[in-house]
Design a protein around this nucleic acid. Structure first.
Lengths: 145, 145
DNA sequence: TTACGTGCAAAACGTTTGCAAGAGT
DNA sequence: ACTCTTGCAAACGTTTTGCACGTAA
């Protein structure tokens, strides 16, 4: 149990295979398939460490629960599906011009910026058949499995 | 109806005079100056109603506490000061072109988008003298008002 | 009287932390 | 031995809710 970050790589693999910026609960549930004894606290602690070292980024969107994803490059633009609640990285290059114009217009010192697009993702649009809704609706907390 | 939203207008006035998207605690503290008996639950309930009717918008940034502001026009771009934690509306017109290009590149149906710029606001930059830090640092909860 | 906003307290929810235990060195 | 992660449960901060009250119709 007390190996230096027993679940670290498993969590990273999960996030790599599921680039949807899952919730902690989702990660915990998936992790328990292979490690039935892993506790939620450990998942939180591991995630916090990974964020601190820069491997992961935490997204404050979605209001209630934190969402985590790999810090791939500088992709700070996201698409958030309002139906299945997945969060995708967007392959759009940062518009640094915007930072300059905001700074010029407001006098605020801009250090970085983020961007979120909301809508319905392709999976959800193309039909309920292909939907692998990995996230239960916000109302009911599904802890099963 | 008994007291049709006794505090509704006071809250809206507060938000209009302080376009910094305050926390619920800040709103509650300010409101108690004129209405010493108002409860936090009422503030939450009123804010929820105002958000539901579209008068206010809730910002999920800042991680821990929800922030609220008036739904002025379609200004969905914000500047977030990492020092005093104020959130300013940005007078930048929406870049609708971005929505179209994201939709074209990803196949996701884009309905809207938001944008956040992070840095240090002009007030904080121009010197600590002019800083009216309306928000205590996240560590200590200052209820003394 | 009825309806419903309100205050209060408790509950609910996500997240963090204290502590003892166990694996690795 | 010593270190450090882990599981468990309790604590924590934010938000919601149950319930009785009281005010406006």
């Amino acid at each position: 149990m007390p190996r230096p970050f027993q679940y670290r790589d498993s969590i990273l693999a999960l996030l790599k295979d599921n680039p949807i910026h899952p919730t902690v609960d989702w990660i915990h549930a998936q992790l328990r398939r292979g490690h039935p004894r892993v506790s939620l606290a450990t998942v939180y602690r591991t995630l916090r460490t990974l964020v601190a070292e820069g491997t992961l980024c935490e997204l404050p969107f979605g209001t209630s629960e934190s969402r985590f994803g790999l810090t791939l490059e500088q992709k700070h633009y996201h698409f958030i599906c309002e139906q299945c609640h997945k969060i995708y990285d967007l392959p759009i290059r940062p518009r640094m011009t915007l930072e300059r114009s905001v700074q010029a217009e407001t006098g605020h010192q801009v250090r970085r910026h983020t961007m979120e697009f909301y809508g319905v993702c392709r999976e959800c649009t193309e039909g309920p058949a292909s939907v692998t809704s990995l996230r239960p609706p916000r109302e009911q907390k599904e802890k099963t499995e």
